[in-house]
């Protein structure tokens, strides 16, 4: 065995170890990559990690208040094996605005959204190329820890996803508790704040110890949102958050989005054109894995530049 093959073998092992702990598929094939693999929290990542984990004063200072993140995608392409999920998407995600993604089923909205916080890392056949820039830095760069990225870019799913064995309280603070914040008063405070933001606090304040699964569907979805907000993300991705809810619960979540955008940048997928028009500042229309057009919501809906967009928003297909 020569030096090269030994090094290659070592990289392979380190790679597999790193995949186990972070879900990070790629690792640079360089010497500095070795250092990163053994000390995954080195460099700039360490700074943000400490900020999050340090406890009382740090906790309140994390998040978007100080310095909102700027986000954009450049030539973002996601392939599922040989099939294209989305192709060559370059759009800005406007800071502290709501961006709606619309388009017919299967056009790649979810695929695009999941690329924004590296959720595709877990799908074996998915391959992401192009860039997602967060404050000018590509989140797919090899020195980026996807776990820390997901802390800054939260996600809410189509169906509510309460952790089944946890109480309401534990669900909300899961993201804080499980990285080592144990101080009860900090957790209490964070829990109340997040539940208030998600407009759920008054309904559950007397039963925080109850099982999260005992809540109604709409409440569970707001709990999922509260849980995502508790770690104070700078960006919140929402994949059809109201599609399984009744009109009243939908209404509450739309109000919630409206008040949240003062602090958080939001990207929301919706099937419902009225909803997109109501809640969003910008709208991007996807069709067959490609971006057809993106613009201010008002102008896109009143004055679409592309014929396809017009056909879709007037309900001629989709």
């Amino acid at each position: 065995m020569d030096y090269k093959s030994i090094k290659k073998f070592t990289m392979k092992i380190l790679n597999s170890l790193k995949t186990l702990t972070t879900g990070n598929k790629k690792l640079p094939q360089t010497a500095s990559g070795l250092a990163l693999a053994t000390h995954p929290q080195s460099g700039t990542d360490a700074a943000s990690h400490i900020e999050i984990g340090a406890g009382s004063n740090a906790h309140s200072s994390v998040g978007s208040a100080a310095k909102p993140a700027r986000m954009e995608t450049r030539g973002l392409t996601v392939m599922y094996g040989k099939a294209t999920g989305v192709h060559n998407i370059s759009i800005p995600i406007h800071t502290r605005k709501v961006t709606a993604l619309i388009g017919p089923s299967g056009c790649g909205k979810t695929t695009f959204l999941r690329a924004l916080n590296r959720m595709h890392d877990l799908t074996r056949i998915a391959r992401v190329t192009g860039e997602v820039l967060l404050d000018g830095k590509n989140i797919y760069d090899s020195d980026i820890n996807p776990v820390l990225i997901r802390r800054r870019i939260g996600m809410v799913f189509q169906k509510p996803t309460p952790f089944p064995t946890m109480s309401i309280f534990d669900n909300v603070v899961a993201g804080l508790k499980l990285v080592g914040i144990r101080n009860r008063s900090i957790l209490n405070e964070a829990c109340e704040k997040a539940l208030r933001q998600a407009a759920l606090f008054d309904e559950v304040k007397d039963r925080l110890g109850d099982a999260a699964v005992s809540l109604s569907g709409g409440q569970q979805q707001r709990l999922s949102i509260a849980r995502a907000l508790a770690v104070e993300p700078e960006v919140l991705l929402m994949d059809e958050p109201t599609s399984s809810l009744d009109p009243q619960a939908t209404n509450r979540i739309e109000e919630l989005i409206h008040s949240l955008k003062k602090e958080v940048t939001i990207v929301i997928i919706t099937h419902n054109m009225q909803q997109a028009a109501r809640v969003s500042d910008y709208t991007a229309f996807f069709y067959m894995g490609k971006l057809v057009e993106m613009g201010k919501t008002k102008s896109l809906f009143t004055n679409p530049r592309q014929k396809k967009t017009e056909e879709y928003i007037t309900g001629r297909f989709g």
Binding site: L122, R151, F157, A174, S224, R227
Partner: peptide
């Protein structure tokens, strides 16, 4: 599977998601 993704989406490492949820 969505439970795991929900865990990852709040910034938990994978092993944490498995152990705690």
């Amino acid at each position: 599977w969505t439970i795991r993704e929900a865990g990852l989406a709040i910034g938990l490492p994978r092993w944490r998601v498995v152990l705690s949820t």
